[in-house]
Structure formats: C-alpha cells, structure tokens
Simulated assay, not measured.
Amino acid sequence: MIDQHDPHTGLHSEQGALRGEHPGRARNPIVKVRDLAWLEFEKPDLDRAEVFARAFGFTVSLRTQDELQLRGADAGVPCVLIRRGARSRFIGPAFMAAEPTDVLRLADVTGRTVTALPESVGGVTVDLIDPSAARVRVVADTHELPALPTQQPLTVNVGHDVTRVNATQRPPRESAAVQRLGHVVLQTTKYLATLDWYLEHLGLIVSDFLYYQGQRERGPVMSFIRCDRGSTPTDHHTLAMVLGPANRYVHSAYQVSDLDSLAAGGEYLLERGYRRSWGIGRHIQGSQLFDYWRDPDGFLVEHFSDGDLFDCTLEPGWAPMTASGLAQWGPPATKDFLGIKPGREAFRELRAVIGALRQDNEFDLHRLRGLLKVATS
C-alpha cells in the first residue's frame, strides 16, 4: 500500500496554547516598538563585505574607511551597519520606537541613558542589555532615506486567470534587489528569560511557538515574534529566538519582490562563487519563500518573499520542532543550515554544547536530546 501520510500534518497548530502554557505576550509592556530598524556587525574586510552586499542586492548608502552602511529600496533607515573590527562578529539589533517619547520611557524604567546616534543615521538611542548579554538598541528621530526604484513583480498567469497575453517572461539574471530588512534570528541559552524580556520591554508578541517532540510539558524552545501594531498587520516574525548551547546570531532575512527575483538572484550569486546554504523552498511558520546564503564572513543571510502578515488579534500557534517541519516544499534542510556540517562551525557548536552543559542555564541534557532528534526528524 502507498503511505498517504502527510509528514506536515499537525506541524502548524492554530489551536493555541494548552491551559497554563505561555501566553505569548506581556500584559503591560513598557513600550511597543514599531519595527526592526537595523542590524550592526563588525568585520575586518569592508571591501569584501561590500562586494558580497552588492551581489546579494543591497545598495550602499554610506562607505568610509571604517564603516559600511547597506540599505534596501524602501524608504527608511539603512538595513545593516558594518564597522571595521579585528574580527567578524554580530553586535546586536536596533528597533524603531513607535514614538520618540518611548525612548525616554525605556531609559527611565531601566535606568539607562539616552544618547545621540552618529550623524550618518541621526536620532537618539537607548542601549539595553537583554538576559543573553546582547546589546539591544531602541532608536527614534533617525534620518529618513528616500525610496529607490526597485524590481517589480512579474505579471503572472495563475490558473485560468489570464493577465499576460502576447508577452513573454524574460526576467534578467541579476542581483535580487533587497527591499527591506525583515527579521533576525538569535540563539540563547536563557530562552524563556530572554523571550519574556523582549515581550515586556519592547511589547513584541508571539506568532508561533515550537517545542521538542515529547517535551511540550517542559515548555517551548523557539518562538517567532512580531511587533504589536494593533489592527495594522505586521510580519509573522520580526525576531525569532531559539534555545541553544551558545548566545549567538543565527541568520537575518531581507525581502525581495517575488519568486523570480529570488531565484534569478540566486543564480547571480552562484555565478560569482558564493555558497547557498539552503533553498529554494517555502517555510511553514511564516510561509515565506526562502533562499539562504553564507556571506564571506560565514554569516547566514536570507532572501525571502511572500510572508504571512498578522494583526494583534491572532493568538500563538504551537507545533513540534522538526527538520522536515521547516519547509512545506523544497530540498531537505542542509547540514550547513542546521549547523551540523563537519568543519569549524560544527566544532565550535560542539564545544559550546559541552560548555553549556556545565553551566546553570536552560540548555540541559533533556534539551540536548530534544535538539539531537530535530536534525533527524
């Protein structure tokens, strides 16, 4: 007999939490941020970083001897700020305050100081430290970059809905023009404490929780978190957070216009010798079309398109975490994407596992067993 079982059945529960499980939002957050503003990195070779950034689809908005600012086509602030440093490292995210007074409120409640940002971006920031020791900026009154021309989605005949007649499709093989920064994914050894901190301080709300199979009663180990803008729909996740053996950056994602842009942009990157980590496919949580790449410094970056948008009324979904549950269709998740490809990164993660098990945090032997099952499930 042919097995008719769909391995994706039940992977995206929309029935919500069981009694006593995490509600996915804070009752009275200090502020509610509007969006992710930018990400900050340090890298030793800005020339190499710029070459990849242009191939990936960014536009350079500022370049000096010691700094590189990258933007998308949408109006707003730069997506990525890179400063010259002795080694490659992620510094932290910056979130855009809904109102300038929110920066003052955060500073007052947390005992931090409001400081001016560099003139290249303008405005002010309050710099906070989350429970994973990451620097988190909340910014306001920044300079607004004007919108740029961008790639337009192709006119597509869908089924019997004909919109293109006597015209061919010949999308150019060029870089996939980045429109905007979508989200960042962070790993933490203190998942619940860090999750609650973001919900309480920044007013973020959870779209989906994932838990290890057989360990739901021990609580979630990953959350996809969005901004709360009331009735205005926002990305399924602006921040995603996952329990792991080390506090680190996992990946960041940048929106492009459509599937053709994403696919042609991938061919453009391959022709220039860059390494695809995983793709092309469509996610389950968030529904995005995705394509993951490694930049020359080893950072994982994603092109995405067609993601889910939720308003504040939708409650969190709950689902088990599995490797097959990462995508509705597409190639299986690679060892590189899962962090288990033999090499320096895998050795570093193994060393982090050994260190984490010796410390007092949420990553214990039960969680390690759950994580090991993910890669083969």
Rank of each mutant, 00 (worst) to 15 (best):
M1V: 06
D3N: 14
S13N: 07
Q15S: 09
A17R: 14
A17H: 02
L18A: 05
R27Q: 15
K32P: 00
L39G: 01
F41P: 04
K43R: 14
L46K: 09
A49S: 04
E67V: 07
A73V: 08
A73L: 02
P78L: 07
G85S: 15
S88L: 04
P93T: 14
T101Y: 04
T110V: 04
T115F: 12
A116I: 00
L117D: 13
P118I: 15
S120A: 14
V124I: 08
V124Y: 08
V126L: 15
A133N: 13
D141R: 11
T155V: 09
N157L: 14
T163I: 08
Q169C: 01
V178Y: 05
G182R: 10
T189Y: 03
R216E: 01
E217V: 09
R218G: 10
G219M: 12
S223E: 01
C227S: 11
C227R: 00
R229Q: 15
T238H: 09
A240D: 02
V242H: 03
G244V: 04
A246I: 12
V256W: 06
L259N: 10
D260E: 14
S261R: 04
S261K: 06
E267V: 07
Y268T: 11
L269N: 14
E271L: 12
E271H: 13
R275V: 15
S277Q: 14
I280G: 02
I280A: 12
I284C: 09
G286Y: 01
G286W: 00
F290A: 02
W293T: 01
R294T: 12
F299Y: 14
L309C: 03
C312Q: 12
T313K: 10
M321P: 00
F337P: 03
A352G: 04
L357A: 08
R358D: 04
E362T: 04
V374E: 11
V374Y: 13
